[in-house]
């Protein structure tokens, strides 16, 4: 369970490029809830995810995960509770190491690693079983160097690594955006499966309206650093992508047509 209260983040405060990324955001994500996040560019959705993961320090506000406050903790300190899958399929794995070695890192997530050799035959068998779930014929390539795999394969392994030790919170940051459609589909299928199987509390940022509606139990829409729509599961069922686009269109209209502009238009057509 994540509770976010009055979270603020301003980039380049005081300069001409000042940008309010998060403006007093309040959000509660319940246990086992799967929230999809959509929003325009610069709406603050990635900043929100980064703040939860610990990659950025908010200017104000509070974040608690399962009751313990993590606002000031570094990213690696939160890894015990939180797993991440990045947009860049190359960010989540170490290219110079084998698949087995990468999985071992995930297997040890949030725990101290000691100078003992844990990567034994038993653990390899376990990794093989897990890789088989991906259905990419990777189960017999444990000693393959990660760098030689495709983006889709690497993202699938990253996803597997994120859930190898089921976390309290899973953060997905447009994790299919950089993939070809076929790989993206595969990853989405796996995402769905893992979240269901492990009943993970999930926050997923996406660019795809379709994904946002099809997946998850709740969708939030962000704009200008604020949550402007919060759509519960019951409502989502009846919503189409067109409806969502309309909502965006509405925002665009209200934004573009500021009172001054309306004034100008009036003068032109008068």
């Amino acid at each position: 369970m994540i509770v976010i209260s009055r979270l603020c983040k301003i980039f380049n405060a005081g300069s001409a490029d000042e940008m309010i990324a998060l403006n007093e955001v309040n959000l509660t994500v319940g246990e086992h809830e799967f929230v999809t996040v959509i929003g325009t560019n610069g709406s603050g959705k990635s900043t929100l995810l980064n703040a939860i993961a610990g990659n950025i320090v908010p200017d104000a506000g509070k974040i608690t995960v399962n009751g313990s406050e993590v606002t000031a903790k570094a990213d690696f300190q939160r890894a015990k509770y939180i797993s991440r899958v990045f947009q860049n399929p190359f960010s989540g794995t170490a290219p110079g190491m084998t698949i087995a070695e990468n999985l071992l890192m995930a297997y040890n997530r949030g725990r101290h690693s000691y100078p003992v050799i844990n990567l034994n035959a038993k653990l390899r068998d376990y990794f093989r079983e897990q890789l088989a779930i991906l259905d990419m014929n990777l189960e017999n390539r444990l000693e393959t160097i990660m760098g030689s795999l495709s983006g889709g394969q690497r993202q699938a392994i990253t996803l597997l690594m994120a859930v190898l030790r089921p976390p309290m919170v899973l953060l997905l940051d447009e994790h299919t955006a950089a993939l070809d459609p076929k790989s993206a589909n595969q990853i989405i299928k796996l995402t769905r499966r893992f979240i269901k199987e492990y009943r993970l509390t999930t926050l997923m940022v996406t660019h795809s309206m379709q994904q946002a509606l099809e997946l998850g139990t709740r969708t939030i829409m962000m704009h200008h650093g604020q949550i402007i729509e919060d759509i519960p599961e019951e409502e989502k069922k009846f919503l189409t992508t067109e409806d969502l686009l309309c909502k965006f269109e509405d925002i665009r209209k209200t934004e573009k047509l500021t009172p001054e502009m309306i004034e100008i238009l009036k003068n032109q057509y008068a």
Binding site: Q77, A79, N102, S113
Partner: peptide
């Protein structure tokens, strides 16, 4: 392995809690 992973991909190893 953690040492090697740290050099190889700091973003990844950080996400693994190191």
């Amino acid at each position: 392995l953690t040492m090697r992973a740290t050099g190889n991909n700091p973003v990844m190893i950080s996400a693994q809690g190191v």
